[in-house]
Structure formats: C-alpha cells, structure tokens
C-alpha cells in the first residue's frame, strides 16, 4: 500500500468538548482532520464526501450507537480503519468493538500519547497492507 504524507481522520462523538479535545491532540501535519461529526448520520455524510483513512468513534451516542456506525462504515467504506472510544470498558464493550472490526479501543479519558500510539499502530497496519 502507498505511504501517504498525511492521514485523513474523522472524529465522531456527541460531545463537543470531546471532539475538540481529540482534535487538539492531533494538531500535527501528519494528521488531517477531515471532519467532526456529532452522530452517525453526519459521519456517513462526511465519509461520502471526503474519504477517511481512520475514524475515531465514540461508542455511546444517541439514536445510532458507535457500534452500529462502525458496522455501516465497514460495509460501505471498508478501507476506513476504526478506533473506538468510550468511558466504559467492560469486557463485553471491548468485545463488541472488536467484533465490528475496530482496530483499537481506548477508554476515556486518554492522553495525547495514548491516542497517537493508537493512531500510529493503525497507520502501520494500513502501510503494511
């Protein structure tokens, strides 16, 4: 797979504060935040318009959960890798995330180093594919 200069990232979380915090952590030329969505429908609309290498998705969201969104993304945008995030990290939550094809799971709150390590791990999988 071609190595690119910067990786296109979509952030999906119903919390404005969470989205802006995550976006601030990714303030680096290597990462291009193509959009921030507060829910699943908005996320899909962004992906139709602008493809993403990575989607960071909160699990607990109103109407359509992050898990359901991840399933839809895997169906329609199979090249988009997914990192799931949640304040909950019980075993069944993590298993649900893995079962829908998430490349990683992070429990909130996470720091910049943890997030970057996760993204770089996903990027190395993309580059090796």
């Amino acid at each position: 797979m071609e190595v690119v200069d910067n990786y296109r990232i979509l952030i999906v979380d119903d919390s404005d504060f969470s989205r802006s915090s995550i976006s601030a952590m990714l303030d680096d030329p290597r990462y291009n935040i193509i959009g921030e969505a507060s829910g699943a429908k908005e996320a899909i609309n962004i992906l139709v318009d602008r493809k993403a290498h990575i989607a960071i998705i909160d699990i607990v969201m109103p109407e359509i959960s992050g898990i359901e969104l991840a399933e839809k993304i895997k169906e329609s945008f199979s090249n988009t890798q997914i990192i799931m995030i949640s304040s909950l990290s019980q075993e069944n939550i993590v298993i649900d995330a893995i079962s829908v094809g998430a490349s990683d799971f992070l429990q909130k709150p996470f720091n910049k180093e943890t997030l970057i390590n996760s993204i770089e791990k996903v990027i190395s999988n993309i580059e090796e594919a």
Partner: peptide, 30 residues
C-alpha cells in the same frame, strides 16, 4: 459541555470499576 463529558467519563469509569468489584454489569445511556 465540559461538565457533561466529565460526568460521562466519571460514570463510565465508575461502572467499569463497579463490575470489577461486584460483578454487577451496567451501562449508561448518552
């Protein structure tokens, strides 16, 4: 917005820890 997300994080960690302490499995909504 800060308060809402702070509570979400606090309660998520609380329920995760509570399951480890007691085996009681519970989730919170958005």
């Amino acid at each position: 917005s800060i308060f809402t997300e702070s509570m979400n994080i606090l309660l998520g960690k609380f329920l995760t820890q509570l399951e480890e302490e007691t085996g009681l499995m519970s989730l919170i909504s958005s």
